[in-house]
C-alpha cells in the first residue's frame, strides 16, 4: 500500500512535467504542423540561463521567471527568424515533407552545441527551492518530497492559466482559430503570422518550465533534456497530438505507467516502457486516447 501511494504521487509529479513538454509540442504542432524537435534545445538554453541566474543571485524563483521569459523569447525567435524563412524558401520538391523534421533536428543540434560551448559538458546541479527529502509516513520515508508537491502545484497553476487564456480571452480565440484554419482566420481579420509566433512563444515558455522543473531532481547537461523530449512526444501521441487536454492526460498516463513499472518491475525498464506505450497506442488507437476527428495524415 505504501509503495502504491508513493508510486502514485511520484508518477503524478513526473507526469506533470511530461504534460508540460507535451503541451509545448502540441501547441506548435496544431498551429504549424511541425513536431518541434528543437524544443529540447530551446528548453536546455533557458534552463542553463536559469542555472546562471541561480548561481549569481541564489534565487530559484527569479531564475524560474527568467527561464520562462527566455523560453518564450527563444520560441518566438525560432519561429520568426528560422521556421518562417525556411517555409518560404523550401516550397518545391519532395524535400518539403521532411524539411521541418530535419530543420528542427538541426536546430536542436546547434542549440545543444552552443550550450556545451558556453557552459561545458560537465553535469551541473540546480538546487531545489524546497526540500528534496521525502515526507515521512509513520516510520517510513516516502520518496515523495515537498519538491514533488511543488512541481504538481506549479504545473496545475500553469494549466489553469493556459486554459483560461485559450478559453476566455480574445487572444486565445485567435490562437485557436489560426490553428484550426489559418485561411479562414486570416479572412476574419486575425493576423495569423503574428499569432503563430505567439503560439511558439507560449510553447517555448511551457517547455522552459518543464526544463527547469525537471532539473533539480537530476542534473543539467547539454543533452539532459532529450529524454524529456522523447517522453513529451510519447505523451503527445498518446493524447492524440491535437488536443491540449490529451497532452495532459497522455503525460499523466505515461508518468504513472513509467513510475509503476520502475517501482514494481525494474528501474532500467523506463525507456522500453515508454516505447511500448507508444507502439501499443499507435497500433490500437492511432488517433490517441482523446481522439480528434482529423485523421493522422500530416
Amino acid at each position: 500500500m505504501y509503495k502504491f501511494i508513493s508510486s502514485l504521487l511520484i508518477g503524478l509529479s513526473l507526469g506533470a512535467i511530461y504534460s508540460l513538454m507535451s503541451i509545448s509540442l502540441v501547441l506548435v504542432w496544431r498551429s504549424t504542423r511541425v513536431v518541434n524537435f528543437a524544443q529540447a534545445g530551446q528548453a536546455i538554453v533557458s534552463t542553463y540561463i536559469a542555472y546562471e541566474v541561480v548561481n549569481r543571485t541564489g534565487s530559484f524563483w527569479l531564475a524560474f521567471i527568467v527561464a520562462i521569459l527566455a523560453g518564450a523569447l527563444l520560441g518566438a525567435i525560432v519561429d520568426r527568424y528560422f521556421m518562417r524563412p525556411l517555409f518560404k524558401r523550401v516550397t518545391t520538391g519532395p524535400i518539403v515533407a521532411i524539411a521541418p523534421v530535419v530543420a528542427t533536428l538541426g536546430l536542436l543540434g546547434i542549440l545543444r552545441a552552443i550550450v556545451g560551448f558556453i557552459w561545458g559538458v560537465e553535469l551541473k546541479p540546480i538546487a531545489a527551492p524546497v526540500s528534496l527529502d521525502g515526507y515521512s509516513l509513520g516510520s517510513e520515508v516516502l520518496p515523495f518530497a515537498p519538491y514533488n508537491a511543488l512541481v504538481i502545484l506549479i504545473v496545475a497553476i500553469v494549466l489553469i492559466v493556459l486554459s483560461l487564456l485559450f478559453q476566455k480571452t480574445n487572444l486565445g480565440l485567435s490562437l485557436r482559430a489560426s490553428a484550426f484554419s489559418p485561411e479562414i482566420a486570416r479572412l476574419s481579420g486575425v493576423r495569423v503570422n503574428e499569432i503563430r509566433t505567439l503560439g511558439w512563444a507560449i510553447a517555448g515558455a511551457a517547455g522552459a518550465i518543464a526544463g527547469i522543473l525537471a532539473t533539480p531532481t537530476s542534473y543539467l547537461s547539454p543533452n539532459s533534456l532529450d529524454i524529456l523530449l522523447v517522453f513529451g512526444f510519447a505523451a503527445a501521441v498518446i493524447g492524440g497530438l491535437e488536443s491540449m487536454v490529451g497532452a495532459v492526460v497522455g503525460g499523466l498516463v505515461l508518468g504513472l505507467g513509467v513510475t509503476f513499472v520502475s517501482n514494481y518491475v525494474s528501474t532500467s525498464l523506463i525507456f522500453p516502457t515508454a516505447f511500448v506505450f507508444l507502439i501499443v497506442i499507435l497500433l490500437v488507437r492511432p488517433s490517441g486516447i482523446v481522439a480528434g476527428k482529423r485523421s493522422r495524415r500530416a
Partner: peptide, 9 residues
C-alpha cells in the same frame, strides 16, 4: 504512420 509520427517513434 507518416512524417512526424514516424520520426518521433
Amino acid at each position: 504512420l507518416s512524417g512526424p509520427y514516424l520520426a518521433g517513434t
